[in-house]
Each structure stands twice: as structure tokens, then as C-alpha cells.
């Protein structure tokens, strides 16, 4: 499938930036998303091919503007709704209620 994720040979992507002594996770939430990769598979919600396809279906602008673990989060959200694990809008409601409770 052709898409923004198929990056080999694209030009003008800018310099390769490296970071010394990089931690496994830069933010706590990245580790939580990483862990959900395992728990979501274990629950049988989807497989790795569906997971990748969930990333590859992202719009090009959003794909380029978001980080690796945000791609993962996007795919989890898409697939969990498509598989009926989460209802449409359920996540937004939970976010609102958590914010209400003080974050």
C-alpha cells in the first residue's frame, strides 16, 4: 500500500538528529503506550498486522507531526473502536471526566 509511512528514498526530510544516552522512554506516557502493545495483543483485540495498518492509515500530516508512540496510540484508538472494545466517543468522555476530577 502506498502511503506516507513508505519513506524509503523520500527527500528533504531534514537532518538526522541523534541524542546521547537516550532513555528507553522520554515521557512516562510513552512507557504506558508501549506496555499496552503487549496487553492489547494478549487480550486478542488485534494482531500486529492490524496494528501496523492502523498506523499506516493515518493522514500524512498527522503522521509526520506526531511521534512514534503517538502513532501507536492512534492505532490503538482506531482499532479498539473498530473492534467494539471502546464505544465511539467513550475515550473523549473519560478524558473530560478525568480533567473534571483534576487531571
Amino acid at each position: 500500500m502506498n502511503g506516507i509511512h513508505d519513506m524509503g528514498g523520500m527527500q528533504c526530510m531534514g537532518p538526522i538528529e541523534r541524542e546521547e544516552n537516550e532513555p528507553a522512554f522520554h515521557e512516562t506516557w510513552e512507557g504506558r503506550v508501549f506496555g499496552m502493545f503487549f496487553t492489547n495483543f494478549a487480550e486478542g483485540h488485534f494482531n500486529v498486522d492490524m496494528f501496523r495498518h492502523g498506523i499506516e492509515r493515518m493522514g500524512p500530516a498527522e503522521y509526520l507531526e506526531t511521534s512514534y508512540y503517538e502513532h501507536w496510540l492512534h492505532s490503538f484508538e482506531t482499532l479498539l473502536v473498530e473492534r467494539g472494545v471502546l464505544a465511539e466517543g467513550e475515550l473523549e468522555e473519560k478524558i473530560a471526566s478525568l480533567r473534571e476530577a483534576g487531571g
Binding site: E27, G31, R32, H45, L73, K94
Partner: peptide, 24 residues
């Protein structure tokens, strides 16, 4: 983003589909 992730983890935990200790 942190809030989205927290909300997702909370929802899946409430549904009994995720154990936060496993993620730890």
C-alpha cells in the same frame, strides 16, 4: 497526549482488559 493515554489505560483497566501492574 499524557491525558489521552491515562484515559485509555483507565478505561481498559475498568473493563478488566488491562492490569496496570503488567504495564509497570
Amino acid at each position: 497526549t499524557a491525558m489521552r493515554v491515562k484515559a485509555l489505560e483507565t478505561l481498559l483497566t475498568e473493563k478488566g482488559l488491562l492490569d496496570p501492574a503488567a504495564i509497570d
